[in-house]
Simulated assay, not measured.
Amino acid sequence: MVVQEFTVDLNKPLVFQVGHLEERYQEWVHQPIVSKEGPRFFGNDVLEFLTRTKWWAVPTIWLPVVCYFFVKSILMGHTIQEVVLIALFGIFIWTLIEYTLHRFLFHIETKTYWSNTAHYLLHGCHHKHPMDSLRLVFPPTATAILCFPFWNLVAFFATPSTTPALFGGGLLGYVMYDCTHYYLHHGQPSKDPAKHLKRYHLNHHFRIQDKGFGITSTLWDTIFGTLPPSATTGKKN
């Protein structure tokens, strides 16, 4: 008796289908469908709504929070110049977090039902439908939840007065990352460095998906040896 392999029906909600692909999931999810029309994730309208986010929601929601943390450090005794330097360090740390998450978490290989499902929700959907504009930035609800462990981590290493500025810098780095990521997919930059970054990132999506994990820069790809061949040879994609 021949058992027919599971096939994903793109006309039905996808999230609870993709897990059934098991070992074939990785191959499937890295075959992009280039369409501005995003798929439906859930049959439930509330869950579906929570997966869709306009890009401008990220700076609108989080930039006031960033300012709040900067002001908090100033009120705790730091000068504006000190807060700027601390914030710049926070942004720098974010670039490493950005690279690390993208390389080791977002591109983890999965093959079981629930691990495939979780990966698809986290990042796989973006590789399958890279031009889906409503699922390109991180939903604010999820970001808010993740802020708590990141705050505690920063507070563990920093002083009480520097923690707000350092965390605010990291949060600002995240805002810059998400807005840059959206622009690389949907903007049309005509000059470097944005033009180079767009080419670099689309290379990650459509040619060499296990290289080029940086979004806002190629710094950590250079340091850790994950530059794609085109970036090291200088050839255009």
Rank of each mutant, 00 (worst) to 15 (best):
H119K: 10
P160V: 01
T100R: 01
S133M: 00
S190A: 11
H204K: 07
A158H: 02
Y99V: 02
T112K: 07
K111L: 00
F150T: 14
T112A: 06
T110S: 08
Q188K: 12
Y99C: 01
F157K: 02
T159D: 04
G170L: 10
T180S: 15
C179Y: 03
S161P: 01
L171N: 04
A165S: 09
A118I: 12
F104V: 07
F148Q: 12
T117C: 05
F150M: 15
L172F: 14
H129W: 14
C147E: 11
G173E: 05
K111G: 04
H127F: 01
S115A: 08
I108F: 13
P139A: 01
A158Y: 00
P193N: 13
R135H: 11
Y113F: 13
L121Q: 07
A142V: 11
P193H: 12
Y177M: 07
L146T: 14
K191T: 15
P140E: 10
K195A: 15
A155C: 04
Y200R: 00
H185M: 08
N116A: 08
P130S: 09
L197W: 14
H185G: 09
F206G: 02
W114H: 09
C179G: 08
F206Q: 07
H201S: 10
A194G: 09
P149G: 11
D178A: 15
W151K: 08
V137S: 06
K195D: 07
L153C: 11
L134K: 02
T159W: 03
I208K: 09
K191V: 15
T141S: 12
K198E: 15
Y183Q: 13
P189Y: 07
V137H: 04
P164L: 04
S161T: 02
N116C: 14
F150Q: 12
P140H: 10
L134Q: 05
D132Q: 03
Y200T: 01
L122A: 15
H119C: 10
W114P: 01
L121W: 03
N152A: 12
P193W: 11
T163H: 04
T100E: 07
D192T: 13
N116R: 05
F206L: 05
P140V: 06
F157H: 06
S190R: 13
F148T: 15
R103M: 05
F104H: 12
P149I: 11
A158T: 03
Y177C: 09
H127K: 08
P164Q: 06
H196V: 14
F148R: 10
W114D: 06
F150P: 05
L122I: 12
Q188C: 09
T112R: 06
F206H: 06
L146R: 09
N152G: 11
H102E: 08
A144D: 09
T117N: 02
G170H: 06
M176R: 01
L134T: 05
L122W: 08
A155K: 06
A155F: 02
L146C: 13
Y200H: 06
P140N: 10
Q188R: 11
T162I: 00
P189M: 13
L202R: 11
T163C: 06
T112Y: 04
T143H: 08
I208M: 06
